[in-house]
């Protein structure tokens, strides 16, 4: 198990928004929820490998920017057609104003 990776500053993500984070050839999406918690998932939609960070965050849902596939970014759960495969999620912590992701 790899350790915690520093992904971004806590202020780099707006509330109810998402940014992209690339690390060692992989891409992730870092979310900040409307109630100011942070979450992380794989960065690409499970339907057609589109970067989710271009998508829209509404409450606890991220919507793919291409085909409107929806996931709960807190649990990774796919919310119906066209997405049927869940999104992988990763543990997140915030320390000293920085967001850390635990990547396996």
């Amino acid at each position: 198990m790899a350790g915690w990776i520093e992904a971004c500053g806590a202020d780099d993500v707006d509330e109810e928004d998402v940014i992209r984070f690339d690390h060692e050839g992989r891409t992730f999406a870092i979310y900040r929820s409307p109630d100011d918690e942070y979450f992380a998932t794989d960065g690409l939609c499970t339907h057609e490998k589109i970067h989710l960070a271009d998508g829209l965050v509404m409450d606890d849902i991220i919507e793919c920017p291409k085909h409107n596939g929806r996931f709960n970014y807190k649990t990774g759960q796919a919310k119906g057609a066209p997405v049927c495969v869940n999104l992988k999620t990763y543990p997140v912590k915030v320390e000293g104003g920085q967001v850390f992701v635990q990547i396996d």
């Binding site: 589109i50 970067h51 271009d54 998508g55 829209l56 919507e63 920017p65 291409k66």
Partner: peptide, 11 residues
Amino acid sequence: PGTSIARDIRL
């Protein structure tokens, strides 16, 4: 480029 304008179009 890519899906850069998608979020704004969705809004």
